[in-house]
């Protein structure tokens, strides 16, 4: 996993296939980074993820709960069609915004995840 901080956002970029094995590793890494760095929002950049099962949904929902408690948001960017099927089925995109790019997601965090009217 690669990550970086832009303003108060932790940008997380997992590599490869997210199953329960990798989701557990990612969870620990993100938790450590979030505690160490002064961030309020988490943005998942899915551009290097070519497979995901429902463990990935659990991972994102867990981070959503964390950022909600901090008054921030969790967003997902660069979702391939392959991942989109699972994300739509799970209802995940009803609680977190799906963005085309990381930049768009950063903009979203400034509006608390709300779309412009």
């Amino acid at each position: 996993m690669d990550y970086k901080v832009i303003q108060d956002c932790l940008i997380v970029k997992p590599n490869g296939e997210i199953d329960s094995h990798y989701a557990d590793i990612l969870k620990k890494e993100i938790e450590n980074a979030a505690l160490r760095l002064d961030i309020r929002n988490i943005i998942f950049d899915f551009s290097n993820v070519d497979f995901m099962d429902s463990s990935g949904i659990g991972l994102v929902v867990g981070r959503y709960k964390y950022t909600s408690a901090m008054g921030g948001i969790t967003a997902a960017a660069c979702i391939s069609d392959r991942l989109m099927k699972l994300m739509t089925l799970s209802g995940l995109l009803k609680i977190i915004p799906a963005c085309k790019t990381v930049e768009e997601a950063i903009t979203k965090t400034k509006r608390g995840g709300k779309n412009e009217l």
């Binding site: 989701a23 463990s55 659990g58 991972l59």
Partner: peptide, 10 residues
């Protein structure tokens, strides 16, 4: 444990 509860649904 952050299980989504979606295994069988998927």
């Amino acid at each position: 444990e952050e299980r989504s509860g979606l295994g069988f649904t998927v």
